[in-house]
Every structure is written in C-alpha cells, then in structure tokens.
C-alpha cells in the first residue's frame, strides 16, 4: 500500500547522498574517497533502478495480461457476474462520488487545522505540539485500522450511516486528513515571516493576513498535498473492505446515501474470482487505476513546479 512519508526522510537521505557524490566528484579529494563516493552513488542508483524496475514490471505485466480487455467496454460496462459483460462503470461512478465527498471534507478541515496550528497557536504552545505529534502518528496508522473505525463508528455505532458512499468518504477522509494537515502546514510555513510582518505593519488583522496573503501564497503547496491525498484515497482498498459488505453493487452509486463500490474494490473482487477471464479483467482494471494515479501525481508535481515561489 502506498505509504506517504510526511517528512520524506527517504528523499532527504537520497538528496544528501546525491549531493555528497556530486561534491566528491567535483572536488579533488584523495582517490580512495572518490572511489568510495562513486560506490555509494552507484548503490543509490541501483536502488532507484530496482524501484523503477518493480513498477515497470507491474505495469508491463498487467498491460500484457489485460491487453485483450483494455477497451472502451471496460469503462462502460457495469458490474456483472459474467466476465464478458463486467466492467468498471459502476466502480468509476462510485469512486467519483466518494472522492467528491472526500474533497468536501478534507479541504476545509485539513486547511483549517493547518491554519489554526500555524497561525493561531504559539510556536511553543503545548497544545499545538500535542496535536502535531498526534497528527504525525495518525499519518502512520495502517489503513485497515481506519476501515475498522469506519465500520464501528460510521457505518454502525454512533453515526450508523450504513454501507454507503458517505461512510466510505468519511473513512477515507479521516485516513488522508493527517497528510493534508501536514502538507498544508508545511506550505504555510514556507511563506516567509517577512510577508506576515509586511501585512501586519499595514494594519491588517491576523485573519486578513492569513486570508489575503498567507493562503494565496500557500495554495500551490496545499493543492499539491490535496491531490496527493486524493490519489492515495482513490487507490486505497484495505479501509474499504470492512465497509464493503456490498462490493457486488450492480447499480451505479447515485448519491451520498447510496450503496457504494469503488475501483480498487471491484478489482479486488475480480482477483478473488476463480475464472481466468476475471484475472484478465483485473489486470486491465489495474492498468486503468495506475493510469489515473500516475496522471494525478504528475499533475501534482507539475503544479508544484509551475507555481513554486522562490523567495
């Protein structure tokens, strides 16, 4: 399962390694160091290659296996117990509905929390630190736990919303909310203090400063985080399985209180089937899901590069 590392420690290590290698190559150090650094660089390169090869293998394998079913019928056919008639249509509609409500939840809650923590609590505030630690921890909780939470508290229990689109949305929103908060805080923190001071020195209130200066400057970063969060939510299967009493929905989900299905759930269901035709179908579905995720992540990267503000 994709686990988003909020502090991107791995990226930092990789960057530090790469810098070290470059510096080593450019400076006239003793031969031994150059060799050692070269070795380190090669190892890093090998690591990246293995990761990329794994991805390529996955895509390639599914592409070949699923090729016979990769056509428009896959997108327009609804759910069916006959492999020949089965498609992703209901799943796509379901995913769209679920994501619409996920966005509705995470944007105000995530950005609001980030603004509150960054701008309206002191840096030394114990409360802010406690929340920060908790948010960090929540970001690392396995997603199945959120599925169980959704089952116990949202589908049944206090909220009792049933196995509906809205239940799936709330569950997935809770799952990705920590990431949205962490990324939004980072984006807000990246706006230099001189902008805040400049605005406050003109007689702007804190709220005006946040609304008119900080948030507009931080939006590209926040948007990047939200897209990454959504793309994670689209691919998540584990938290939906406990809620997926109705994975075999034969109709298109039509609103928040309608029964739901989603792309990863349908694919999961297909993989479970004994018939070989369903395996082909699953492979084709995986290719579609991967294409959507890669497109969304690329968009997020493009957005970040396009609007990256150099202060």
């Amino acid at each position: 399962m994709s686990d988003f590392d909020p502090k991107t420690a791995r990226a930092q290590v990789a960057i530090a390694g790469a810098r070290g290698v470059t510096a080593g190559v450019l400076s006239d150090q003793p031969r031994k160091d150059v060799v050692r650094n070269g070795l380190f660089g090669s190892l890093l390169f090998l690591g990246i290659m293995i990761a990329l090869a794994g991805l390529a293998l996955l895509v390639g394998d599914n592409l070949i296996k699923g090729w016979p079913r990769l056509n428009m019928d896959l997108l327009t056919n609804g759910t069916s117990s006959l492999p020949a008639n089965a498609g992703l249509h209901s799943a796509i509609i379901g995913t769209l509905w679920i994501m619409a409500f996920v966005i509705l939840f995470i944007v105000p809650l995530g950005v609001g929390s980030a603004v509150f923590l960054e701008e309206f609590t002191g840096k030394e505030s114990r409360f802010a630190r406690a929340v920060e630690v908790n948010v960090q921890n929540l970001a690392a909780v396995p997603s199945i736990i959120y599925g169980l939470l959704g089952l116990a508290f949202i589908a049944r229990g206090p909220l009792s919303l049933g196995f509906t689109v809205i239940t799936a949305s709330i569950t997935l929103a809770l799952l990705v909310l920590p990431v949205v908060i962490l990324v939004s805080r980072e984006a807000i923190r990246a706006v230099p203090p001189s902008i805040r001071e400049g605005s406050m020195a003109l007689g702007a209130t804190r709220l005006q400063t946040v609304r008119r200066q900080i948030l507009p400057a931080a939006i590209p970063g926040i948007a990047t985080g939200i897209i990454l969060a959504i793309s994670r939510a689209i691919g998540e299967t584990a938290p939906l399985i406990p809620l997926g009493a109705a994975t075999f929905v034969t109709y298109d989900p039509s609103g928040p209180m309608s029964g739901f299905t989603a792309m990863p759930l349908v694919i999961f269901n297909w993989v479970k089937q004994p018939q070989e035709e369903f395996q082909v179908l699953a492979a084709a579905g995986i290719v579609v899901l991967l294409a959507v995720l890669i497109a969304m992540n690329s968009f997020a990267i493009w957005l970040r590069n396009r609007y990256e503000q150099r202060w």
């Binding site: 230099p192 001189s194 001071e197 400049g198 406050m200 020195a201 003109l202 007689g203 702007a204 400057a217």
Partner: peptide
C-alpha cells in the same frame, strides 16, 4: 495594536513585497 499600525507604518531592512 492593529489600529496603531494603520497610523504608524513600517519599512523593513529587506524589501518584502507581497507575491502579487
């Protein structure tokens, strides 16, 4: 203090235009 700053403006050491 917000009212005070409306009347008493400030220019800083490093130019700090808004990103606009």
């Amino acid at each position: 203090p917000v009212q005070v700053r409306k009347l008493i403006g400030m220019v800083f050491q490093k130019p700090n235009p808004f990103p606009k």
